[in-house]
Structures are given as C-alpha cells and as structure tokens.
C-alpha cells in the first residue's frame, strides 16, 4: 500500500459520474492562458462543479462569484470530461503536492489523459496582428505527437519547462499516466485570450468538443481588463519563485 502524506485533498461534492475522463488543467501562469481557456470551456460546455481542492498550503483565499463563496481551485465535469481550474497562482510547494494529488485522483478515475493548457512566452506575439498563435506540444506518449501535428501543433523539441505544468507532467510520467501539455505562444505578463483560443482549437479537434470561439475573440478586450488583478498577482508570485519556459525554435 502506497503511503502518502499529502497535504492536498480533492474533495468531491457529489457523485460525479465521471467515466474514464479526459482531464484538462488550467492554472494561472504565462498570459493566464490556462485559467482563461479552462474558464471559457467550463462556461461554453456548461459543466457542473464536482469537486474542490483543499490544502493547508493553499493561500487563504476564497473567491466570491455572484455572492457565492468558492474555493480558488475547483474541478468541473460530466461524462468523459473534467476541467480543473485555479483562480489563484500556485506556489512551488503547492504545485508539487497539488499535481501529485491530482495525478492520484486521475488514476482513481481511470483517466484517459491529463492535458495541461498554458502559454509559452513569445516576443513576436507582442508585435503580431494575429488573434491566434502557434501551439507547441510536450507529451509522454510520442504517438500523440503525430496525431497532434495533423491538428496544426508543433512539437516542443528542446528547452525547459518549469512551474506547475512541469510538476504535473513529472508526476504523470512517474505514475504512468498519459499526459500532454499544450503551450500556446503567448504574451507573458499580459492576459492573452487569443492564445487561449488557440489551445481551445486544438482541444476541440483532439477531444471532439464543440465550442464557439467567437465570443472569446469578440470579448477579448473585456477579458483582458477583467483579468488584470489575477495577472498581477500571478506575475508577483512567478517573479518571486521561478522563471517561465523559454522558446527554442
């Protein structure tokens, strides 16, 4: 029996009825790509909240949405899809314990795959007039690379990954869970809804989801204005603890 002394717990609020789910994970890092895409998918696919994450390592933060208090890290889902969203930046210790617990939870659910969605800082993104950006892929299942290339992604061939998504991939590699990280070229210190749209496009094809991206692109200015506070906190935590991945192309 595996002995764990996890300080992070995933508390299910109701029988989720998940069956061999694909799990998408969005936490705030580069350009808030993870949180923006997770939040948009939850809303578009109308997924119910099924669990929250409890930990004494968590900042003592409660997010209040329309007068309802919520834990800042939550899981939504039904059927074969679960989406994990964090609305607070994760410090390194929390990232490491949280991703370990999430990987255990995923194994318990016999998850097919865990997909981290995030951004990779790109200078040329700042001067590009495109809404959409290139998406790079890192996976511990090489067969997926070929399939994903057909969906217009590029393989991340050389470089470092750091932070919560690196911890997630590391845990999945250790536990033998199939994992994939989608990294959209993104603004680094400013929220980037266009980059979020680019990863969602890949997810749509890979998981056969039906998502209308038009509102995300039409309302990108509003999202940029409304996510300034989270971007600012995320930036403060990241500067204090780590440097993000670099593009090597």
């Amino acid at each position: 029996m595996e002995q764990t002394r996890s300080r992070v717990h995933i508390i299910e609020e109701a029988a989720s009825g998940l069956s061999r789910p694909n799990i998408i994970v969005g936490v705030p890092e580069v350009g808030l790509v993870g949180t923006i895409s997770a939040s948009y998918l939850i809303q578009q696919l109308n997924l119910p909240e099924i669990a929250f994450v409890d930990s004494d390592l968590m900042p003592q933060v409660i997010v209040v949405h329309e007068s309802v208090p919520k834990h800042p890290v939550r899981i939504y889902g039904k059927g074969d899809l679960a989406i994990v969203i964090a609305e607070t930046p994760l410090t390194p210790r929390l990232s490491s314990e949280f991703t370990a617990e999430l990987t255990r939870w995923a194994r318990g659910k016999e998850a097919k795959i865990i997909i981290g969605v995030t951004g990779i800082p790109s200078r040329k993104r700042e001067m590009s007039a495109e809404d959409k950006s290139n998406v790079f892929v890192v996976t511990n299942d090489v067969r997926l690379n070929e399939r994903l290339k057909q969906h217009g992604t590029r393989v991340f061939e050389e470089g470092l990954m750091v932070g919560a998504y690196a911890a997630l991939l590391a845990n999945c590699m250790t536990a033998g869970v199939t994992s994939l990280t989608l990294l959209a070229e993104s603004l680094q210190q400013f929220p980037d809804p266009g980059a979020a749209a680019s990863v969602i496009e890949v997810l749509e094809k890979l998981l056969e989801l039906k998502v209308n991206l038009k509102p995300l692109l039409d309302e990108s200015e509003e999202i940029r204005v409304k996510s300034r506070e989270l971007m600012s906190t995320t930036q403060a935590v990241q500067q204090g603890t780590q440097k993000p991945a670099g593009v090597y192309t």
Binding site: P59, F190, R228, E229, M231, S232, T233, A236
Partner: peptide, 27 residues
C-alpha cells in the same frame, strides 16, 4: 511567499485602480 502574495493583493486596488479620477492604472 503567501505573505507576499497577500500584500500584493491588499495593495491591488492602489496599484490597478484610481477611483477618484475614474481611471485604471494599466499593467
């Protein structure tokens, strides 16, 4: 790190909004 985080959040209104002049302070 959390203390830093909370200081940042507590100071957020000062750093991102100026209510009197109806202006946002840009990132």
């Amino acid at each position: 790190v959390h203390a830093l985080l909370h200081q940042t959040m507590a100071g957020m209104h000062d750093s991102l909004f100026d209510i009197d002049s109806k202006s946002l302070k840009p990132l």
